[in-house]
Design a protein around this nucleic acid. Structure first.
Length: 397
DNA sequence: TCTGGGGTCCTAGGACCC
DNA sequence: TCTGGGGTCCTAGGACCC
């Protein structure tokens, strides 16, 4: 190990402007123009390429704000199928290096290459191999941060962007970290940053200088612990690939913003049914059942509330989830225009299949059978081939 | 044309049990 | 009769991430 990356086996790989890069692969004519993905009617910007960023366009901005910042930007509708496909291919490239790949999102992953050394060279050489291979195979660029812990690797990749590499070895990390603004830390957003500033904590070094018990008193037990670790770069140095078997998702949900606010109970009930169907179909595909049904309602003034109820038995039955969601919604009362509704099922666990049929009443067993028939039709004829009568001849909101 | 959709984790209060 | 505490579950909200 002669390139100084030997003590930095944790890699954070982050695609550059991922959605925009994928959309532009087959549009070389647009490469030097500002391009925005998403941000249509009532939507936000999902990604902006670097030319657009020069005008101040950022992901998360409303489409209207983006247009104001850069009126000449080309707007493209996102193609999630393509994003998912590229993501799968890229993750496969990572797994050629090590099985220790933690997919953090479609376009980011942590890798632990400590055990990969002999075959592939130093962590830095591995990072460069990954960057070259991703570009060769997918024609998109990525940036890689290398460090001894995951949060520092993530900071490093951000600083390396676009199309770069940065190594932050342990003996240099505190000198790098401590002058940074607290807002740079992973997990410190706008609100926490403002709160820390009020407490006189402006830089990461300020946080590091506070004794842990005092810090906990100031910001709470978990946050204090978390911030202390980040400030001293003593956070997690392991990478945990998530296996669906012993570590399933905690919750699954679906939500949708109406194209126009609605207070029509029929419109909302139909939407709750559609969302419940979408969520439970995903649960059945993943072999999961859940006990808590939650709804989310966003009113036209953006006030957002959640209501939830825990069932006696876990379920993956569309009709059961829809009935609970409808009950929770009706309990809110009516009369306020609604912008968004969502349905989420929490407390997920693998379906065992044994206790289930016994626990189900006759009626629910019937619904469950109906769900499975719909799933089979969806697999044969494509999603949405079969739907409840109330969803026929209606427009999606 | 102001503010998407998918998640995770934490906090806090009340219920309930020991 | 009065007093105390710990642990867990449930619900609602909020912060944060991509």
């Amino acid at each position: 190990m002669t390139d100084g990356s030997g003590d930095c086996p944790i890699l954070h790989v982050d695609m550059d402007a991922f959605y925009a890069s994928v959309m532009l692969r087959d549009r070389p004519d647009l490469h030097d123009q500002p391009v925005v993905v998403g941000g249509g009617h009532r939507g936000v910007v999902l990604a902006a390429n670097y030319p657009a960023r020069r005008f101040g366009v950022r992901s998360g901005m409303s489409g209207a704000d983006a247009l104001r910042a850069c009126p000449q930007a080309v707007r493209l509708a996102p193609e999630f199928g393509a994003f998912e496909s590229v993501s799968r291919s890229v993750m496969e490239i990572f797994r050629q290096v090590t099985p220790l790949v933690e997919a953090y999102s479609l376009d980011e992953a942590f890798l632990d290459v400590a055990g990969a050394g002999r075959l592939r060279g130093t962590p830095l050489q591995i990072a460069e191999w990954i960057r070259a291979t991703v570009y060769d195979e997918q024609r998109i660029t990525c940036s890689v941060g290398l460090a001894a812990t995951v949060s520092v690797a993530k900071l490093a990749s951000r600083r390396a962007k676009p199309d770069g590499v940065l190594v932050l070895p342990p003996d240099r990390v505190l000198a790098y970290l401590h002058p940074l603004d607290v807002g740079e830390l992973f997990g410190v957003g706008e609100k926490t940053r403002a709160r820390l500033r009020k407490l006189g904590l402006l830089t990461v070094g300020d946080i590091a200088a506070i004794p842990l018990p005092t810090l906990k008193q100031m910001v709470g037990r978990a946050s204090g612990e978390h911030l202390h670790q980040l400030a001293w770069a003593t956070d997690r140095s392991t990478v945990a690939p998530r296996s669906s078997q012993d570590d399933p998702e905690r919750s699954m949900g679906a939500e949708e913003t109406f194209s126009r606010d609605s207070e029509d109970p029929d419109v909302i009930s139909r939407e709750l049914l559609r969302l419940a169907g979408k969520v439970t179909a995903r649960m059945r595909r993943a072999g999961l059942v859940g006990r808590t049904v939650a709804i989310r309602v966003r009113y036209s003034n953006f006030e957002t509330i959640t209501r939830s109820r825990t069932l006696a038995d876990p379920t993956d039955v569309t009709a059961v989830v829809h009935a609970e969601a409808g009950g929770l919604f009706r309990a809110l009362g009516t009369g306020r225009p609604i912008r968004l509704v969502g349905v989420r099922v929490e407390g997920l666990r693998p379906r065992t299949g044994v206790d289930r049929q016994l626990a189900l009443g006759e009626r629910e067993a019937g619904w469950s059978e109906a769900d499975r028939a719909v799933d089979r039709a969806d697999r044969r004829f494509g999603s949405g081939a079969v739907k409840p009568a109330t969803l026929l001849n209606t427009h999606r909101p």
